[in-house]
Simulated scan of single mutants.
Amino acid sequence: MTDGCILDFDGIHAGIAGSSTCVRFIAKGETMECIEIYTGGDGHSLFRHIEAFEVSPVYFKGITVSLSSPQACESVLLHEFNSDYFLGWHNPPSRQYVVVLAGELEIVVASSETAQRFAAGAVFIAGDLHGKGHTTRAIQAGRALVVNLRG
């Protein structure tokens, strides 16, 4: 390939212009899989796997990078939590991306006996804006980046 390619080293993407070999191509339409918490028809929250952040190669300042389209957000918060953190049944104020930076969180929904755990590096979407909601507790103290989306 003479006009560049996308490389992937342990999840970090880099582009090399004029390269003739690539470790891994990032094709248009590639997505990130994550878990979404959403409200079912019965008003109870559920978990589902979804594909988010469709990426495409973009030429930027002399290199090719793999980027998704921008998404408007209302606010970005850093949430620090202790190991004894527990938030009872609640709904998020808006659809949220939650990126666990350190520690581990456990989410429980009413419709499931099984909790989902999210350790450092995990991304989940809190989108159960109505109904009973979910509980959140810390398994291990840490912090999370919370991105409140618009609309």
Rank of each mutant, 00 (worst) to 15 (best):
H13L: 04
H13R: 09
A14S: 13
A14E: 05
G15E: 08
I16Q: 06
I16C: 04
I16A: 03
I16T: 06
S19T: 03
S19I: 01
S19D: 05
S20D: 03
T21S: 10
C22E: 02
R24N: 00
R24G: 00
R24W: 00
F25H: 11
A27E: 07
A27K: 07
A27D: 06
G29I: 03
T31K: 06
M32K: 06
M32W: 04
E33W: 08
E36I: 04
I37T: 04
Y38W: 09
Y38E: 04
T39H: 05
G40D: 07
G40Q: 11
S45Y: 03
S45H: 08
F47G: 09
F47T: 08
R48Q: 12
H49R: 13
H49T: 13
I50S: 10
A52P: 02
F53L: 12
E54A: 14
S56T: 14
S56Y: 07
P57R: 15
V58G: 11
K61I: 11
K61S: 14
G62T: 01
G62S: 13
G62D: 12
T64L: 15
V65D: 13
S66M: 10
Q71I: 11
Q71V: 12
Q71T: 10
V76I: 04
V76T: 03
L77R: 07
L78A: 09
L78I: 11
H79D: 01
H79C: 00
E80K: 10
F81S: 02
F81T: 03
N82F: 07
N82E: 14
S83I: 14
Y85S: 07
Y85H: 10
Y85D: 11
F86P: 02
F86D: 14
F86R: 12
L87H: 10
L87V: 02
L87G: 02
G88M: 05
W89I: 00
W89S: 01
H90C: 03
N91K: 08
N91M: 05
P93M: 12
R95C: 07
Y97Q: 02
V98C: 01
V99I: 06
A102E: 07
G103C: 04
L105H: 02
E106K: 03
I107E: 00
V108C: 12
A110E: 11
A110K: 05
S111C: 08
S111R: 09
S112F: 11
E113A: 13
E113D: 15
Q116I: 10
Q116D: 07
R117Y: 02
R117M: 05
R117E: 06
F118W: 10
F118D: 13
G121A: 05
G121Y: 08
G121K: 12
A122P: 06
V123S: 12
F124V: 08
A126I: 00
H130N: 15
G131P: 08
G131T: 12
K132L: 13
K132T: 14
K132W: 06
K132G: 06
T136E: 06
T136N: 01
